[in-house]
Design a protein around this nucleic acid. Structure first.
Lengths: 167, 167
DNA sequence: TATTGTTATACTCTATAACTATA
DNA sequence: TATAGTTATAGAGTATAACAATA
C-alpha cells in the first residue's frame, strides 16, 4: 500500500474535468495517523528491501531466520526451532527438507531419544548464512541512514516494547 | 517468532543433565539487535492484536483497509483501489466479490466508461466500518500506552520515513 | 499416555498471463 | 492499441488433524 497524502499541490486540474478524477490523490483517512497502520507500511517496505538483498544471495528472509537460529543453537530439535519461530512444527518440515536437499543443513538422530533430530549447518550452510548476514548488514546500514543515529536507540527500544507487551 | 534473550538466570539446571538442554533459552544472535528484525517482530505483535479485535467485529485487517479506502474515496475504481493498496487488481476481485455478496459495498458501472466500476459503501458497509474504526481506536490506545505520549510523535515520524525512503 | 516428526489436506494471500469488453 | 476487470492457475506460507515411531 502506498501512502500518498492529499496535499493541495497534488490536486492538478489538467483538463479541468473527468481527468482530474483520475489524477486525484487517494485519501487514507485516519489510517495515515495511526501507529498500527504506519508500522505495517514501514515493515512492508523494510521487508521488501531485505527480500531483494536476500535474492541476490539466492535465498529469502524466512530461510535467513531459520539458518541463523540453527547456527546459534546447534543441535536444536525441529520442535524447539518451530517454537522459536512461532510456527507449527508441520510448517517447518518442507522448509528443512529443502535446506537438507540443498546441502545447507544436516540432520542427525539423537542417540538417547531416537524420535528427535539434531539440526546443524553444513559448511555450505555457514557460507550461505555469512552471505545473508552481509545482506542484513547492508540493509541495516540503509535503515540507519533513514532513522538517524540519534533516533536509533529510542526507536529500537520502542519496537522491543511493542513486541514484548502486545505479544 | 518469540524473542527470548539468553540470560544467565535462564540457564536452569533442574536435573543437571539432558533436561537442561530443553530448558535452555534460544539464542537469536545478531538478529536481536537489528532494526529490521525488531520491526518485523513489533509489526507481527501489533497485527495479531488488531486481528483479534477485528475478529470481534467479524472482519479482518485486510477488509478494514479496503473498506476505509472506499469510504474515503467514494466512486473509486478497482484499479485505483488496487494501486492504493499496492496489490495487483486480480487480487482484489475475490475480495470485492465477497464484500458485495455480504452487502457491504456496491458496484456501479460508470456512464461514460462502461469498462470501469465505481465502488462505494452501502449503509451496512458504513456500519461495519464504524465498528472496525472503534476496534482500531482501541488498538491505538493500547499501542499508545506502550509507546508513551512523549515518544509517539517521533516514533510515527520515523516509521513514515522508513516507508517513504525504502519503498 | 505423551512427544517428535511426517503426511494429508486446506485455506489465505499473492502474482502472472490470457482473456472479454470496451475505449 | 490500450485499459478495466475477470478467470485460470500457481506458489508461498500457514494451520489442523491423524499418524508412526519412540519414550
Amino acid at each position: 500500500m502506498i501512502l500518498t497524502r492529499a496535499k493541495s499541490s497534488d490536486r492538478r486540474k489538467k483538463t479541468a474535468g473527468a481527468a482530474a478524477d483520475a489524477a486525484k490523490a487517494i485519501d487514507f483517512g485516519p489510517l495515515a495517523t495511526w501507529v498500527g497502520f504506519n508500522l505495517r507500511m514501514a515493515q512492508a517496505s523494510s521487508f521488501q528491501a531485505f527480500s531483494k538483498l536476500s535474492q541476490d544471495v539466492g535465498e529469502n528472509p524466512g530461510r535467513f531466520a531459520t539458518l541463523m537460529l540453527i547456527a546459534k543453537n546447534p543441535g536444536i530439535s525441529q520442535t524447539a526451532l518451530s517454537r522459536a519461530n512461532g510456527r507449527d512444527k508441520s510448517s517447518l518440515t518442507p522448509v528443512l527438507e529443502d535446506l537438507v536437499r540443498r546441502g545447507l543443513i544436516q540432520r542427525q538422530r539423537m542417540h538417547n531419544d531416537k524420535r528427535t533430530y539434531r539440526l546443524k549447518l553444513t559448511p555450505a550452510g555457514e557460507k550461505t548464512l555469512a552471505k545473508l548476514i552481509g545482506a542484513a548488514r547492508r540493509h541495516e546500514e540503509n535503515l540507519d541512514r533513514v532513522i538517524g543515529a540519534r533516533e536509533r536507540t529510542r526507536f529500537l527500544a520502542t519496537l522491543r516494547r511493542i513486541a514484548a507487551d502486545l505479544g
